[in-house]
Simulated assay, not measured.
Amino acid sequence: MDFTFTEEQQAAAEAARGVFAGVAPDGVPSPALTRGAVADDFDRALWARLADADLLSLLLDAEYGGAGLDAIALCLVLRESAKVLARVPLLESCAAAAAVQAYGGQELKAGLLAAAGRGQVVLTVASHGRTGHDPAELAVTARQDGDAWILDGVQTAVPWAHNADYTLVPAHVPAHMPAHTGADRTLLALVPRVHESVVLAEQVSTTGERLAELRLESARIAARDVIDAEGAWEWLRRLLTTGTCALALGLGENVLRMTGEYTGKREQFGFPVASFQAVAVQAADRYIDLRAMEATLWQAAWRLASGTQGALPASGDVVVAKIWASDGVRRIVQTAQHLHGGFGADVDYPLHRYHAWAKHLELSLGPAAAHEEILGDLLAAHPLG
Rank of each mutant, 00 (worst) to 15 (best):
M1P: 11
D2G: 10
F5L: 14
E7P: 08
A13P: 02
E14L: 11
E14A: 12
A16L: 06
A16W: 05
V19E: 00
G22W: 00
G22T: 06
G22I: 02
V23R: 00
V23Y: 02
A24H: 09
G27P: 00
P29T: 04
A32M: 07
T34L: 04
T34H: 06
R35Y: 01
A37P: 12
A39M: 01
D40I: 00
A48P: 00
A48S: 14
L55H: 09
L56T: 07
S57T: 11
L60T: 09
G65E: 06
G66V: 05
A67V: 02
G68I: 08
D70W: 09
D70N: 14
R79F: 01
A86K: 03
R87N: 13
S93G: 05
A98L: 03
A99W: 05
A99C: 12
L108V: 08
A115F: 01
A115L: 14
A115C: 02
R118Q: 15
G119H: 06
G119Y: 08
Q120N: 13
Q120E: 15
V122L: 07
V122R: 14
D134N: 14
A136E: 08
A136G: 12
E137V: 10
A139L: 10
A139Y: 07
R143H: 13
D145M: 09
A148R: 13
L151G: 04
D152W: 01
V154A: 06
A157R: 15
A157N: 13
A157V: 03
A161E: 04
N163C: 11
T167K: 06
L168N: 07
P170M: 08
M177N: 09
T181M: 05
G182D: 00
A183G: 02
D184H: 15
R185A: 00
L188A: 10
V191I: 06
V194Y: 11
V198Q: 06
A201V: 11
T207V: 01
E209S: 07
A212V: 07
E213G: 13
R215A: 15
S218N: 15
A219V: 11
I221Y: 04
A222F: 01
R224C: 03
D225A: 14
D228N: 10
D228V: 01
D228S: 03
G231R: 02
W235R: 13
L236H: 09
R238F: 04
T244R: 15
T244M: 13
A246Y: 08
L251P: 06
M258C: 09
Y262G: 05
T263H: 05
K265M: 09
F269L: 15
P272D: 06
V273N: 04
Q277I: 07
R286F: 01
R291V: 11
A292M: 12
A292F: 09
L297E: 04
L297R: 07
A300C: 10
R303S: 12
A305R: 03
S306R: 06
T308K: 15
G310N: 05
A311C: 03
P313C: 02
S315T: 14
G316E: 02
V318R: 03
I323H: 07
S326E: 11
S326K: 04
V329R: 09
R330E: 15
R331Y: 03
Q337D: 07
L339Y: 12
F343Y: 12
Y349W: 14
H352F: 10
R353S: 10
Y354P: 10
A356I: 02
A358F: 08
H360Q: 14
L363E: 15
L363R: 15
A368N: 08
E372Y: 07
L379P: 00
A381P: 00
G385S: 08
G385P: 10
